[in-house]
Design a protein around this nucleic acid. Structure first.
Lengths: 156, 156
DNA sequence: AGTTATTCGTTCGATGATCGAAGGATTCCA
DNA sequence: TGGAATCCTTCGATCATCGAACGAATAACT
């Protein structure tokens, strides 16, 4: 049921495909940019999670939190942290409150790598957006927020 | 040089972050949906490349084309095709023109899997877009095309 | 307080995706 | 026709990830 309540608007369906193309293009870009620096997907995901945590005010994440954010097993997370620590992108600190926990923090070098990877892309996007007026940008932002919400909700 | 030609417009910078959030959310969703079906990223990428080829009229891709699309070594591609063939999602055919080539085609079961994975997401997106009028959808489409172009160009 | 249960991170052995090198088959070119 | 290039596969090795088990630290229960 509910298969074809009415004919699908082709323009809107195009947008669905465009979203998919954007995400796969971004995926390819990220993989490539990371590979050049010896970082694979999980490493990038971890750094991004740490960066997000930092931007939201938290000083660092525990290994467990990271494992959950990455949907990674505890043992895999240990290996990943060994890797990132060896590369100098992350430090392991002891949690004062709970001494079972290990607090993970990004180093400055990780931030520099991130900027080197994504800075040019962000700059190009900013320039591209000069072709949109403020009202249009607002529409785009509204769409992106709504689309992200939907994808996130499908996730559970 | 060229660090701050002028102050960055915060609204536009927000959009950059929103794009990133959308892509990472989509990535998580895809990984999860695939894992449930025993498909990992490379398998999904391969099926998507095949679907795209089919939608563009090409009957199938050669193993080499697939390897390039996935940035995968020839040997890894062989293994991947073994896997997909064993799962019944793909068939290997001989190319009539060049008998070195192996022509890869999606099976009907692969299409069914794809619909099961992405159909509900697409439906939710379509419904979400009813909150946008035609003119706004056109703006969004223009933005998505431009953003994808940029990401693709950064890729080289 | 003391004992038990839970949580956290790590280590260990195993699995599997991917890689590079080498090889057989086919096609291109001179 | 013969040599070079292309295509896919096989083989051995590497590395990320997993599950199970462990020691340390905390929480819960009595």
């Amino acid at each position: 049921m509910n298969a074809h309540p009415q004919a699908v608007d082709p323009r809107r369906y195009d947008v669905v495909r465009l979203v998919q193309e954007l995400t796969t293009a971004s995926l390819r870009f990220t993989d490539r940019a990371g590979a050049v620096r010896g970082l694979h997907r999980s490493d990038l995901n971890a750094l991004q999670a740490l960066a997000k945590a930092r931007d939201e005010g938290r000083s660092g994440l525990s290994a467990k939190q990271l494992a959950e954010a990455l949907t990674l097993s505890p043992s895999a997370t240990t290996t990943l942290l060994d890797r990132l620590e060896r590369a100098g992108h992350v430090t392991r600190g002891l949690d004062a409150d709970d001494r079972r926990r290990v607090t993970i923090s990004m180093t400055e070098s990780a931030g520099a790598e991130a900027r080197a990877m994504f800075g040019p892309l962000a700059a190009a996007m900013m320039e591209m957006m000069s072709g949109f007026d403020d009202e249009e940008i607002e529409v785009v932002a509204r769409f992106l927020r709504a689309a992200t919400d939907i994808v996130d909700q499908m996730e559970r």
